[in-house]
Amino acid sequence: MFKSKLVRAVVARWGRARRGMTLGVRVAARDGEGRVMLVRHGYAPGWHLPGGGVEVGETAATSAARELIEETGLRAERLVLAGLYFNPAFGGRDHVALFRVDRFERGPEPAPNREIAERGWFSLDALPADTTPATRRRLAELYGEAESDGRW
């Protein structure tokens, strides 16, 4: 556990030193029953919206679609940019593009692995207790229960 935290810290600092800004994506996929897809990572606590980092040469939308398929097996029919957020907790240089997906095709669900330990559909009024505060805020903003302050 200690070694993986140390490695992540070194990699994160190296990445920040090499680039002026980082960009990540998250995707809020909601099914016809009003449930949202959340994932639990093998390397970080809590439940999160699916997503990850934008790779070199990739658009944010392409990255969001790729991460959604890789982490959940869902293929978005249409991604809608819902917001762009500053993430001060990640070195003061990170931003997160949040996309909304209401129509998607279900593909094969990926097997649990080191990155995604678990995934599931949850009603907005019955999110897992350890859903991250940022995920809760984004869902409240997306579905009309809160105003955004622009920070992740």
Rank of each mutant, 00 (worst) to 15 (best):
H95L: 11
G57P: 03
R26W: 00
G83R: 09
I69E: 14
E105Q: 14
G91Q: 06
G24W: 00
G15R: 15
V96M: 08
D102V: 10
R16V: 00
P110Q: 03
F99S: 12
M21Q: 11
V56M: 06
L49T: 09
E109H: 05
V36Q: 06
N87Y: 01
R30H: 00
A60I: 03
G107P: 04
F90W: 09
Y85C: 11
R13N: 14
H48K: 10
M21F: 08
R66D: 13
D94S: 15
A17K: 13
R93Y: 02
H41Q: 11
T62V: 07
V101F: 02
L68P: 11
H95T: 08
A97V: 13
L74R: 07
F90E: 15
M21G: 04
W14P: 00
F104N: 12
A44Q: 14
V96K: 07
L81T: 09
A61M: 07
A82R: 12
R13H: 12
G24F: 06
R16M: 13
R106H: 03
V96G: 06
T62K: 11
G24N: 10
H95D: 01
H41M: 12
V96F: 00
L84Q: 09
A44L: 13
P45A: 05
A28P: 06
L49K: 09
F104A: 13
R35K: 08
A61E: 15
L81Y: 00
F99T: 12
L68R: 10
P110I: 01
P110K: 03
V27M: 07
R75G: 09
P88G: 02
G46L: 01
L23H: 13
G57K: 04
G32H: 05
M21V: 10
G73A: 01
R16P: 00
H48A: 08
L98I: 15
G83K: 09
R26S: 15
E67I: 03
G57H: 04
L38Y: 08
E67N: 08
V25R: 02
V54P: 07
R19V: 13
A28I: 02
V96S: 07
P110T: 01
R78K: 15
R40H: 12
H48P: 09
T59D: 08
E55C: 06
G91R: 03
A29Q: 06
A64W: 01
R66M: 10
R78I: 04
F90G: 03
V96E: 10
A76Q: 05
V36M: 03
L84H: 08
P45Y: 01
A60N: 05
H41F: 15
P45V: 02
